[in-house]
């Protein structure tokens, strides 16, 4: 549905040139939700803006639904843009228009008859759950509500593609979740292809089918989300993934930890569960087989793309050769194991 082939974007500032996008190749399949993640300044905003030509690429092809965007004239581009919806971090609603009028704007451009516009706007208000706020002004709405209006407006002309430029970056976690679930619903109900950019891995985790990581203008790695979280190859990708897991060694353990085993000390391990980990209750099995206690200090385990993955910090309490055997057991069952240190009991 969306193809970027050999996209480069170079900004010239006086004598200096800034290479924002370097030879980007991307393919977003129809009806899929594709996420592009990267740190600030990595180029993700520039990337999404080349798709509807808000940024003109310096070289390369942008193909949306079979149309070569860079080869369209002004009028054709205008018409094509109405088939590509876009929502933004700061919503960008017209403050002088009500919710209803904001959503109606794209339809006014098509010179639709009034009744048709009315019907369509009401349909959209229903879809995003804002029927009771139809005549409010944006200044009277919360952030989540504004984004819903923006989504309704973007969908007014029944586009095939929706571009989301950091759409949840200004919203609190709960509102973010509700907006993401609305997008997931729309994708399922309408078969809408969605491309979103974000700096939050959680966004990708919760709704994306595929993900690409961008850094300094390059696409560093990309793949299906279900595969990605367990099998990312590059350090950058792994760092991003790990950054989403909240794992901390509790304070009281930090004072008692050492890097070498000592008398009466027990290993503190970090266990990583990925798509390739054997799907069995490994913790309780290890505890039973090797007669050790596994004291879980911290855990963050989730599902993404249908696969369970996450990390666990635990203290293995038992005889040292049994703990050693347990560690081997985990590794054999494709659990990523890292011994963080040895904790002494006082």
């Amino acid at each position: 549905m969306i193809e970027l082939i050999g996209i480069n974007k170079i900004y010239k500032r006086g004598t200096k040139t800034f290479h924002a996008l370097r030879d980007i190749n991307l393919h977003v399949k129809a009806r899929k939700i594709f996420g592009v993640i990267g740190a600030s300044g990595a180029g993700k905003s520039t990337l999404i803006r080349t798709i509807n030509l808000l940024e003109q690429p310096s070289s390369g092809e942008v193909i949306v639904n079979g149309y070569h965007m860079t080869r369209l004239d002004k009028e054709e581009l205008s018409l094509m843009r109405r088939k590509i919806g876009m929502i933004f971090q700061h919503f960008n609603l017209l403050s002088s228009r009500t919710v209803f009028q904001n959503i109606a704007l794209p339809l006014e451009l098509e010179n639709s008859p009034k009744e048709k516009i009315h019907a369509r706007v009401n349909e959209l208000l229903n879809l995003v759950g804002l029927c009771d706020r139809a005549h409010a002004y944006p200044s009277q709405l919360s952030g989540g509500q504004k984004q819903r209006v923006a989504i309704a407006r973007a969908l007014a002309s029944s586009p095939k593609v929706l571009l989301c430029d950091e759409a949840t970056s200004s919203l609190d976690p709960q509102t973010t979740r509700s907006i993401l679930s609305l997008l997931k619903e729309i994708n399922a109900q309408l078969g809408l292809t969605i491309l979103l950019i974000t700096h939050e891995m959680d966004v990708v985790k919760s709704i994306c089918d595929e993900v690409a990581i961008i850094n300094e203008g390059h696409i560093v790695e990309q793949g299906a989300v279900s595969w990605f979280f367990g099998n990312a190859k590059t350090d950058l990708a792994r760092n991003f993934i790990e950054s989403t897991f909240q794992l901390k060694i509790p304070e009281e353990y930090l004072t008692r930890i050492s890097s070498e085993p000592m008398e009466h000390s027990f290993p503190l391990v970090k266990l990583g569960f990925t798509g390739t980990t054997v799907n069995k209750p490994l913790i309780s099995e290890a505890s039973r087989i090797f007669e050790i206690d596994i004291n879980i200090l911290s855990a963050d385990i989730e599902y993404a793309g249908g696969t369970k993955f996450g990390y666990l910090l635990a203290e293995l309490v038992g005889e040292s050769h049994q703990c050693e055997a347990a560690r081997r057991f985990f590794i054999e069952h494709h659990v990523q194991l890292e011994t963080l240190g040895y904790v002494t009991n006082d």
Binding site: L54, L77, S78, R81, R82, M86, F88, H90, L93, R153
Partner: peptide
């Protein structure tokens, strides 16, 4: 706000 122009262009105005 600058973003208003982005939205306007994106809508094909």
């Amino acid at each position: 706000p600058e973003g208003l122009l982005d939205a306007a262009h994106a809508m094909g105005l």
